[in-house]
């Protein structure tokens, strides 16, 4: 029973939004190309399913590759920062400044360097994901309970085992927060990359449809992208929750849904 409730809530929200959409279309009599009615978009979703699927798959691969590389690189950077003090003095400011430059501004350069294919989009996603993961993991590594470190010292722990058995697991909940943020922003990187220069992917498809005033197709692509991003976030959130069962969830709402 309790497992179904969020699904039902989600369905109710979707239905309410669809009805509101239809009402706006009927009430304003908006031109078809400005706001297509939901039924038309739905028909396009079905007609164009293979084409949408093809482009969605490419975007999904870009997002997942970006997420994978971003998390690995971010984690590696956090470890370097935590264990090599000069890196904190030299690398950390560079990282912070790199985040101040909008990724949108870097997109054309990345496409110029890495081409129109997958690589530039993956690089884009990595750039966006990297920092939240590094920041969260580094913070987690820094905040190991000093009592645990004292205990480990009286137990004659070496630095390697201390990292592996205490510091790393203690930082995992923080890493998980970083990965959740990464999962939420990864699609931005991929789609921005596709807008700037691509021959496939949902971002490309949306620009293509927009230029040809195929509003139904644009909306259909948008819906697929949204569904993909939401599914990705919740899959990752659920997997992280399952992987870290000791992490306390102090919000009562979350406990009920489990």
């Amino acid at each position: 029973m309790s497992r179904d409730r969020p699904v039902i809530r989600g369905l109710v929200t979707v239905i309410v939004l669809l009805v509101a959409w239809q009402v706006v279309v009927l009430a304003t009599g908006a031109a078809h190309f400005l706001l297509p009615p939901p039924a038309a978009v739905f028909a396009t979703l079905i007609h164009q399913a293979p084409r949408l699927g093809h482009h969605a798959l490419i975007t999904l691969v870009e997002i997942l590759l970006g997420l994978g590389f971003g998390v690995v690189l971010g984690a590696a950077a956090a470890l370097v920062l935590a264990y090599w003090p000069p890196a904190r003095r030299w690398l950390l400011p560079v990282l912070v400044v790199s985040q101040a430059v909008p990724v949108f501004a870097l997109a054309p350069i990345l496409v110029l360097w890495l081409g129109y294919g997958l690589a530039s989009k993956v690089a884009m996603a990595v750039l966006i994901i990297f920092f939240p993961v590094t920041a969260a993991f580094f913070d987690g590594l820094r905040r190991t309970d000093p009592g645990w470190l004292d205990l480990a010292r009286t137990m004659d722990a070496g630095p390697g085992r201390l990292l592996l058995l205490i510091r790393l697991p203690a930082a995992l909940p923080a890493v998980a927060s970083g990965i959740r943020i990464a999962a939420a922003v990864a699609p931005i990187g991929a789609v921005v990359g596709e807008w700037v220069g691509a021959s496939s992917g949902l971002g490309y498809l949306m620009l293509y449809a927009n230029a040809r005033v195929q509003s139904e197709l644009m909306f259909a692509a948008l819906i697929v992208l949204g569904a993909m991003a939401v599914t990705l976030y919740f899959t990752i959130d659920r997997a992280l929750r399952r992987a870290l069962p000791w992490q306390p969830d102090s919000l009562p709402d979350f406990n009920q849904e489990k």
Binding site: D145, G147, W148, D150, L151, T154, D156, I166, P169, A170, L172, L244, W246
Partner: peptide, 17 residues
């Protein structure tokens, strides 16, 4: 003395995982 002491604190210092 190193290696011959055991330490117990006010907090249990158990690892939650």
């Amino acid at each position: 003395l190193a290696g011959r002491i055991a330490y117990m604190a006010q907090q249990d210092l158990l690892l939650p995982w």
